[in-house]
């Protein structure tokens, strides 16, 4: 009797959150896989029709999917590497005993608390393709012709990348500062006695001891950037053409503009597979090494 009462109590504590997991995460994950084998249009009253692997075959032959995948990869590399590089550099500078360092830390963190939608619209104004945009009017004053930042295939993806670098530097910097503060001061003192300069300190102590931080930041930014949606949706809509379209945007277009639920589920599973493989590879190769002091 007591045992049953205990089990009920345990279930009562677990159920509120776990029922959400089952209804809105695990069931959709399976249902999405199921749907990926169906032709299912929300625009018609026809029931979903089983089409076997047809969606997957269509996907592999779909040039827009491949363009979107390529753009997503360009975008990911283009945001993750500069953000981490600048973030680390700023963390090192701001971890020293500079005056005003708190001011700069705060300043760099402001974009992190700015909503991505607002940030994307603000940057759309700044990068406006006419002469009226802030960047273009500045270029004109310097005698450089204005560029179509958002409406040319040459610059559209680049503009989206800039916004994300702007938004994420502060976050990466704060995490690196936390990592830097966990490095014992004695290590630097020891290597200084051995006659090492700034660069040696960085290369032989800072960088290796930051490896767990780097590995964490790299993985989370990689997975995060691969799922970019909002800035693309707001700034370029994936255009011109599909020159800045990304996978999640393509998923959205197929699912919620064309209402092809089956095909959109197939895109979702392609995305899931890619992210899953990335996670596994990261676990295998970038496993954070134990650091012994």
């Amino acid at each position: 009797m007591r045992k049953i009462k205990d089990s009920l109590k345990i279930a009562g504590f677990l159920l509120p959150s776990y029922s959400i997991f089952f209804v809105f995460i695990f069931f959709p994950l399976i249902y999405s896989f199921y749907l990926s084998f169906f032709h299912y249009s929300l625009l018609s009253y026809n029931a979903p029709r089983f089409t076997g692997l047809q969606n997957y075959i269509t996907l592999l032959k779909d040039p827009i999917f491949w363009v979107s995948l390529k753009n997503t990869m360009t975008y990911t590399i283009g945001t993750v590497i500069p953000t981490m590089g600048i973030g680390l550099f700023m963390a090192i500078i701001l971890n020293s005993k500079l005056k005003l360092k708190n001011f700069f830390r705060t300043a760099y963190f402001i974009p992190v608390v700015t909503s991505l939608v607002a940030a994307s619209i603000i940057w759309s104004l700044i990068l406006d393709s006419t002469d009226a945009g802030l960047v273009n009017s500045f270029l004109v004053q310097l005698g450089i012709p204005p560029q179509a930042w958002l409406s040319s295939s040459r610059w559209a993806l680049f503009s989206v990348i800039i916004v994300n670098i702007w938004k994420n530097i502060g976050y990466v910097m704060i995490i690196y500062i936390a990592g830097l503060q966990s490095i014992p001061e004695q290590l630097y003192e020891a290597i200084t006695i051995d006659g090492a300069g700034e660069w040696e300190k960085f290369y032989y102590i800072t960088l290796p001891l930051l490896k767990p931080t780097t590995s964490f930041v790299f993985t989370t930014s990689l997975i995060g950037s691969f799922q970019v949606f909002t800035p693309v949706y707001i700034m370029t809509g994936g255009g011109p053409g599909y020159s800045s379209n990304t996978i999640v945007n393509y998923l959205y277009q197929q699912g919620f503009q064309n209402f092809r639920m089956g095909y959109a589920s197939t895109i979702a599973y392609a995305l899931f597979t890619i992210l899953f493989v990335m996670t596994i590879l990261q676990k295998k190769y970038l496993k954070a090494e134990e650091v012994l002091y």
């Binding site: 997991f21 809105f24 959709p28 999405s32 749907l35 589920s265 979702a268 996670t279």
Partner: peptide
């Protein structure tokens, strides 16, 4: 295993489940 399930939810990207979520 029950705890593992909640860890597993973090590995499932929101966009992947968004279509069935919408239908539900």
């Amino acid at each position: 295993s029950i705890f593992f399930l909640s860890i597993a939810t973090m590995m499932i990207p929101f966009y992947v489940t968004s279509i069935p979520m919408f239908l539900i």
